[in-house]
Design a protein around this nucleic acid. Structure first.
Length: 221
DNA sequence: CTCCCGATAT
DNA sequence: ATATCAGGAG
């Protein structure tokens, strides 16, 4: 496990590598963001954006999603995968928004997770990105980076990872940190071919030295 | 724990 | 051919 100081240095390095780190899901309001994040489960942001470009022109309000058949909505999102579950979730989410929340996206995480298809990770993205409330959404990238670098323990659940990060990082930096870690994980510390050979954090990374011994490291240029 | 699932990188 | 993708529900 890294110390607070080592974590600080690691996050600063990520900030230098990706100063422009931000939410890459295209959206214009909290409602669109909820839909986009719910669609993004086990699917790339690029693919979600390709679908929502048309989706958000066709469906502007919760009522719009309820006005078509389930089959039509399925076809509109088919290319992102898991489309039957996601279409059903979106419809039920819209119905619940209209019934319980006056058609508006709640700003509270505990209310957000009551929406179908919205778990803790999605709720954290929404409160953080749409409403500016400090949160750390632990997705596949944040979890992988945290475990490889040693921000947390290998056996930690995603909830434990989130708690550990919140304990070691000041609240005002949670949102920035989470985007930096996502960019770092998505473009540098990738799941399949991590760029350990050109990584400024190699010296403090336990996964890097492990890969070095196994001869797995690719040195770019 | 399993299932949902198409697109893309490796 | 297989692994992975801003996970969530049963």
């Amino acid at each position: 496990m890294l110390t607070k100081t080592q974590i600080r240095r690691a996050l600063d390095q990520m900030g230098e590598l990706f100063p422009e780190a931000h939410c890459e899901l295209v959206h214009e309001n909290p409602f669109e963001l909820v839909i986009a994040v719910a669609l993004s489960a086990q699917c790339t942001d690029a693919l979600v954006n390709r679908v929502t470009k048309n989706l958000f022109q066709k469906y502007k309000t919760p009522e719009d999603y309820l006005a078509v058949t389930l089959e039509e909505l399925q076809e509109d999102i088919r290319s992102i995968g898991l489309y039957r579950n996601k279409a059903k979730n979106i419809r039920n989410l819209c119905a619940l928004l209209l019934e319980e929340y006056n058609g508006e996206v709640p700003k509270d995480r505990d209310e957000l997770v009551k929406l179908p298809g919205v778990g803790r990770k999605t709720a954290n993205v929404v409160v953080s990105v749409a409403f500016g409330i400090p949160a750390i959404a632990v997705d596949t990238h944040v979890e992988r980076v945290s475990k490889r670098l040693g921000f947390c323990r290998w056996k930690d659940s995603v909830l434990e990872v989130e708690k550990t990060l919140m304990k070691k990082i000041p609240a005002e930096e949670w949102s920035d940190t989470h985007h930096r870690m996502i960019f770092f994980g998505r473009y540098h510390c990738k799941a399949q071919a991590p760029k350990c050979g050109e990584c400024p954090l190699f010296d403090l990374c336990r996964e890097g030295s492990k890969r070095m011994k196994k001869g797995l490291i690719q040195y770019a240029k």
